[in-house]
Design a protein around this nucleic acid. Structure first.
Lengths: 207, 207
DNA sequence: GCGTGTGAAGGGTTTCACAGCA
DNA sequence: TGCTGTGAAACCCTTCACACGC
């Protein structure tokens, strides 16, 4: 079996999102060109990506939306449901708990942790907040795979250590700090500050 | 003058962040190896990136933290302050307004817009909320360059159109929808759903 | 020896050009 | 003609290997 690069994975997820949308609009077929346009990529790029998985396009017609979606999902999303836990129920954490964009059938936040006693035992958007000391137990019980790190920067390394220790397999890091974790645990960093700055640099260079 | 690739820009911003931290810790010098470790990159990569701008490292000593920071900032951050406006003061928008990670000296959210009358004229973290109809006026008056899009998905294309129309030069898009905007306006997408899924795929493949 | 700077090599990704098919 | 699929080329980026300076 072919190995698939992270970039192809990320783009495929965007395709899936767009295909979802098309399905809702009852569109049956889509060309690589149109799919490309709705994702900001080139049409050849789209075709190359898809050809990683199979040959399913039909000349003159394009791709069967439903089939293509299933194909991509089968290849990319190994599991049915991804269980997620959240560390840090501050502004950002709360916003994430309430984020409406999750594909509920695939992504489920199953627990949240905070050290502030006032927040513990609260329930936000059906997710219960536990004390951090219960992390090991809950992660195991709920079969959580991924952790969101949304605690203040000073604590983020400590919490990251804990996340690795309790067996989480990936970390989505929202704190503006580079984490030091074992190489086998992938980390995705989202630092709003850096996103803005790099966007601005791009904007400058376009002018 | 050399052209600088987006990746180098993004990494340089991470270097700047780390250098900031080092400055606070009163460290005067740093080697490429240590800088690399704190950012998860290879030391050669760091040296190559820096050599894009100038030759400032000193054998056996490393880089002067203060000088390097200034060098990078001068090359990368063309302007002193980036003025930002926010569209959509929901959970996510509010969390962004309160996000503590911004480098206040560089990034400033100068106004927020919402269509909900209850939110208008409120002030969150010193940022005032205006009705969307005032966007053109305020963007011009406050010299905003970048817009954050944090409205519900159904409105995001409309608001994106508006953002382009009022002259914003870049969009940070938090809605899980691909935006259709002129090529000269760069867009950065942050779709939490896709971040999780791709992280999970990475985590699966590591095992 | 330690650490920077850099040409060359290697690897990966995107684009080009075109074959094939309806 | 319109669209997919794909080898080849071009491009970009990272890593290697090593010269040089302290």
């Amino acid at each position: 079996m072919k190995k698939i690069s992270p970039r192809v994975i990320e783009r495929s997820l965007i395709y899936i999102r767009t295909l979802d949308q098309l399905l809702k609009e009852k569109q049956e077929f889509i060309s690589s060109k149109k799919l490309a346009a709705s994702t900001g990529l080139s049409d050849v790029n789209v075709r190359k990506d898809i050809s990683n998985f199979a040959r399913v396009g039909r000349p003159r017609i394009g791709y069967d939306v439903k089939k293509l979606k299933k194909l991509l999902e089968d290849f990319i999303l190994c599991s049915n449901v991804i269980n997620i836990v959240l560390f840090g129920v501050g502004n950002l954490g709360t916003a994430i708990l309430k984020y409406p964009g999750f594909r509920r059938e695939k992504l489920r936040i199953v627990a949240a942790f905070d050290k502030n006693r006032k927040k513990i035992d609260k329930t936000i958007n059906e997710v219960k907040v536990y004390p951090v000391s219960k992390a090991a137990e809950i992660v195991k019980k709920k079969h959580a795979a991924i952790g969101i790190l949304a605690v203040p920067a000073v604590y983020s390394q400590d919490v990251a250590d804990l996340m690795v220790k309790v067996g989480l397999k990936g970390i989505l890091n929202f704190s503006p700090v580079a984490l030091n974790v074992p190489g086998k645990v992938p980390v995705k960093n989202i630092d709003f500050s850096i996103e803005f700055l790099s966007l601005f640099c791009l904007a400058c260079r376009v002018k």
